[in-house]
Nucleic acid binder design. Structure first.
Lengths: 218, 218
DNA sequence: GTGACCCTTCAGCTATTCCTCAGCCTCCTG
DNA sequence: CAGGAGGCTGAGGAATAGCTGAAGGGTCAC
């Protein structure tokens, strides 16, 4: 369930999560959230701290499901964890990659026992979501946060063509004002760090986008 | 549904989509669009961002259907995706091939589960729309964007005779000023890249046009 | 405060792609 | 068989997209 009073953010999250295969309910304020949560018992709630009626913390207390908070950047962290309420948080403005990563982490944690692999693999390139580690051909690679998010997006969409606009929308914060040139820069960084050896995995499709895949045999 | 205030573009799109088997409604401005959409609940809306009354984004919010935006090339592309509104966009001037490709992609995506093949095949020539890959006799072929569009047009009209004018109208942008000589050039490119081996698939019908098909056995 | 790292922009460079054109070829016709 | 219309293709110039090194500014840890 996604709870935010701003329709644009609510829709953005809902659409992106649905695309990733989640079933999504939404609510625009605290009372609606509590109500919907009672009726539908969601597996997890993405909850804006700042709501028009009820305080986000208040809502969290009344909801049985795990909670991922959305909060302004300047909110002090202790407030979130200190209250013993909420399982993690993401600061606004966020990137979709980040929110999804946190969601999966919380689900993994709260569901306990079942510890899914959380490891992506394409050819001899491996990425561990939890440990935030990457190997190419068994050799560890150090990536900056953005590089990691970008590679993660590529790997979880391996074989699918991604336009620069799509990449920008998923990997960068939703309020990013710049142009798609950054994507080129970061692809260049990634290529240098993880795509130096054969076979090349990140391919450019001119005027279309990029795709991460093993080159077709032949 | 097609929404654009310019009659020429509206009619161009409507005619081309009808020919491809879609059922098409049109609207000339924002309010009409919202109204028609409510009455008819279209499966998808092709929507010009620049409308005389309502802003295209505003219209999109009030419409339940998936939206494919039409936008000027120089418009800041960033804001299209990012607002969580609209599912894809095409810049003006566009080619009909491109619009139809995007439409199919959006429908494929929003309808989810049903993942149609999206793969065309004629003899030993194969084309994957999503991956943008082409094989001839199992061997991958690299095509430029225009070559790919042209081949796609040929393959989705296999067996049908296409005049150079038709090809120009579908594969090239609607504002293309040049003459049909380009088509000859690109057919030549295609022949070299994908039609070198037997059997020849692209046939010239002198002073009529071209046709892609397997020669009748014998 | 300082240094390390990170993010973003930018500009020069390279590679690719697009389109035109001219010369040659092919087919049809008379 | 000659002539002409239509078609083919190689060459080349212009435009465009993409790559990457460098630089500026920001943030964070120490």
């Amino acid at each position: 369930m996604v709870v935010d009073d701003e329709p644009s953010i609510r829709d953005l999250l809902a659409a992106s999560l649905r695309f990733s295969g989640f079933e999504v309910l939404t609510a625009a304020d605290g009372y609606e959230a509590v109500e919907v949560a009672e009726r539908a018992s969601p597996d997890l709630v993405v909850l804006d701290v700042m709501l028009p009626d009820l305080d986000g913390f208040e809502v969290a207390k009344r909801i049985a499901a795990p909670v991922l908070f959305l909060t302004a950047r300047d909110a002090t962290e202790d407030k979130i964890f200190g209250l013993g309420v909420g399982d993690d948080y993401v600061t606004k403005p966020f990137s979709l990659e980040e929110v999804q990563a946190r969601i999966r982490a919380v689900l993994r944690r709260t569901r306990g026992e079942s510890a899914p692999a959380s490891r992506l693999r394409v050819a001899d390139l491996e990425l561990d979501e939890e440990a935030r580690e990457v190997w190419r051909g068994g050799r560890p690679v150090r990536l900056s946060p953005t590089e990691f998010k970008l590679l993660h997006y590529f790997m979880s969409n391996a074989g699918r063509v991604l336009s620069k606009a799509q990449i920008l929308d998923h990997v960068w914060n939703y309020d990013f004002g710049g142009d798609a040139g950054v994507v080129e820069s970061y692809v260049s960084y990634l290529r240098r760090k993880v795509d130096a050896g054969e076979p090349r995995l990140i391919h450019t499709l001119r005027s279309v986008g990029y795709v991460l895949r093993e080159p077709p045999a032949g």
